[in-house]
């Protein structure tokens, strides 16, 4: 897998935000790559520019230095290859669940029978097909985030950007959803980049972890997760003895300069 050419590349990427009061450097000299089918986590304290990396990759903002490449081509605007999951579900409360999951297809003018059927099949995979005519206000937080995941997958993106998508959920729901996300991404062979400040979540879900430092954000260290932890679903890998070792190591790396 690793000798193929990278799917996503960040080369010397920097981002400086400018306001009337002056400038703030959010990211500096970011270099990394992600291979097709990989699950990479960006782990770091809040305010270290993790979400900025996702926004750059999604083409929502432009870097002030360096280049972001997907399949060797620079990212300039939002691309259909990318699906973005935000911290909260942001379902539109005036639309039914079915209308919500079709939002992306609607915006991309890709509404047709095949795509609609695919979206409904995904909803079924999430165990929510009975709720297609419900409104978001009638669903629990975990169900709503599953609808948001369906909405993201419905446009068939190759790359999924997960911006702390579980942070607003209670712990039990979160564990269940971690498993569901990993299972779904593996089944559909998606590449994923997760942003989180939760060390356990990072180890449980990903193939590789990039640890960031804060202000300006820089990549401090890279950690490969062994297949023993990678292969089981997140809930089970949390129980393995190696898990604790990795947790301790990452904890040390993250607190080295604090």
């Amino acid at each position: 897998m690793t000798d193929r050419e990278p799917f996503i590349q960040f080369e010397q990427v920097g981002k400086t935000y400018v306001t009337l009061d002056g400038e703030t450097t959010a990211l500096e000299n970011i270099n990394f790559h992600v291979f097709r089918g990989e699950f990479v986590t960006l782990l770091g304290p809040s305010g270290c520019g993790k979400s900025t990396i996702l926004s750059l990759l999604a083409g929502l903002i432009k870097p002030t230095g360096g280049t972001v490449l997907i399949e060797q081509k620079p990212v300039t605007s939002p691309s259909r290859k990318i699906g973005y999951m935000l911290q909260q579900d942001y379902l539109l409360n005036w639309r039914t669940i079915e209308q919500n999951i079709l939002l992306g297809l609607e915006i991309q003018r890709q509404i047709n029978d095949a795509n609609r059927e695919y979206a409904l099949k995904l909803l079924d995979e999430m165990g929510l097909s009975d709720y297609r005519n419900y409104y978001p206000g009638q669903l629990s937080g975990g169900m709503r985030q599953r609808v948001a995941l369906t909405r993201t997958l419905a446009t068939r993106p190759d790359i999924l950007l997960l911006d702390e998508p579980f942070s607003a959920l209670d712990f039990t729901t979160r564990l269940r959803l971690e498993d569901l996300v990993v299972k779904t991404l593996r089944k559909h062979k998606k590449t994923a980049i997760l942003v989180t400040h939760d060390i356990s979540e990072a180890i449980a879900m990903s193939d590789r972890i990039l640890i960031l430092t804060g202000r300006p954000g820089q990549i401090k260290s890279e950690i490969h997760i062994p297949s023993a932890l990678r292969d089981p679903l997140p809930f089970y890998s949390r129980d393995l003895p190696e898990f604790q070792n990795y947790f301790q190591n990452i904890w040390k790396v993250m607190n080295r300069d604090e």
């Binding site: 999604a58 939002p78 990318i82 935000l86 942001y90 539109l92 939002l103 992306g104 991309q108």
Partner: peptide, 9 residues
């Protein structure tokens, strides 16, 4: 919500 719509282009 605007960000969400923009991610879909």
């Amino acid at each position: 919500y605007i960000k969400l719509a923009r991610t879909f282009g």
